[in-house]
Computed example of a mutant assay.
Amino acid sequence: MATPRNPHFDDNRVVWSDEYSGHYVPIAYDVQFDEQWRLFLERAIGFRDHTGVEISDNFINDRIFELTGVRDYIVASQNIDEAEQNRDIGGKLYLDPKFPIDFFQGKRCLDIGCGAGRWTKTLKTLGAHVKSTDVSRHGLASTRRINDDVEELNLFDILEKRADLHGYADFTLCWGVLMCTHDPYLAFRNVAATVKPGGDLYIMVYAPTYHASDFVLNSRRRFHQQARTNEQKLAFAYEISNRPENAINLLDMLNTFYNWVIPKDVAVGWFEQQGFEDITVLNLHEPHNCGWHIKGHKKS
């Protein structure tokens, strides 16, 4: 079987345009992030005590604060140790406006691409009923520790094969997934179909900032040319990381075959085309943003 064309390496395309929809093919998405979730479960250095993955209570407190502005929702932090002092590894979110603290209470939520489960636990802690989906074996294993409703799901199956998920959710979250696929526009349409009229959708996609930088693009090219085994890939991530504890951030951006950056107006246009209103870029004024956080309300 021929190797799929990589838009960056083969076609010099990094910034997504909807005219590319249909030009590229799926890859084995079930293995794309699986190694980092395995390392998380094994508590490897760089894959624990990190905002991008950790699900312990103090880290979930941080996620709740970022979403709602409410501090110490679970329990007030005590006995600050080294791990506590490093809770900002991986960066923090600057969201404005915030969600009301009771926004998720009693809602049926869908976490598409749940990974190790940090947003699933955050939503459940805020009173939501959450279905968590992913294609990664180790990600699903991690999330099953904190949620009973966990399902293996390829998001590209939603429109054609999963009518039961059409209009399923009061709130759908798709965090850091769409831009790592062969067709972010089609992926968005599948995800948007899960939101019921009157419900809300929240996505995070890479912005044309850090992930379009020379450092990232050159590092990805070297990584895909040189690293073949999981051991080589991990060593490369440690090599270019500013500190070993941040390895997951580097492996996350390196390992994906597709790593599009999405212009803000393109992502906002997706919401408009799929019948959303009150579309809000939640981090419009974030300094040095790496991604766009966008929420929309589906018309009733």
Rank of each mutant, 00 (worst) to 15 (best):
G117I: 00
S213I: 05
P100S: 00
R220T: 05
P208T: 05
G106R: 02
K233A: 00
I80D: 14
E239I: 05
H50V: 04
C109Y: 00
G90I: 02
H182N: 08
T172W: 05
L41S: 04
N255I: 03
N58I: 12
A169Y: 02
F271E: 02
A44F: 05
D164Y: 04
N255K: 02
V177H: 00
F65W: 13
D88T: 14
A163K: 15
A192R: 03
A235E: 03
P287G: 01
W175L: 13
F171P: 05
V150M: 11
Y24Q: 04
W260H: 00
K196I: 04
N6Q: 02
G199T: 07
K121C: 02
M1A: 15
G91Q: 00
D214S: 10
E231R: 15
D134E: 03
H138I: 06
V268I: 09
N259D: 07
N58T: 13
E66P: 12
I203T: 05
N249A: 10
P244L: 00
L155H: 11
G291L: 07
V25Q: 15
F104E: 01
V53R: 09
N259V: 01
A44Q: 09
S241F: 01
A192Q: 06
Y202N: 07
D278T: 11
D214H: 10
G296V: 08
R220G: 05
A163V: 08
V130Q: 02
V14T: 12
F156V: 13
L159N: 15
D252V: 03
V261T: 01
W292F: 08
D157Q: 15
T143R: 07
I80L: 15
T256P: 02
H166A: 10
G91T: 03
K196H: 08
G106Y: 00
G296M: 12
H166V: 06
E152D: 11
G115D: 01
D148S: 14
P7Q: 01
M204R: 13
H166D: 07
L284M: 13
E54Y: 03
I112A: 00
A2F: 12
G275R: 06
R222N: 12
F223N: 05
L186H: 14
I158A: 08
H297E: 12
E151V: 14
Q274H: 12
K196D: 06
F40S: 03
L284A: 15
N154A: 11
G198L: 09
I248M: 09
L165D: 04
P100K: 02
F276L: 05
V75P: 03
L159Q: 15
L93V: 09
A267T: 01
Q274F: 10
Y168R: 10
A267D: 01
M204K: 11
F9W: 09
W270M: 05
V15L: 10
K161F: 13
F40V: 03
L93G: 14
G22C: 12
N289F: 13
V281S: 08
G198N: 11
D170A: 12
N86C: 11
G139A: 02
L95I: 06
L93E: 15
D252I: 01
R162K: 13
T256I: 03
Y20D: 07
K233M: 06
I294M: 04
S17V: 10
N190G: 04
M179C: 10
I294E: 11
S132K: 06
F171L: 11
A141R: 15
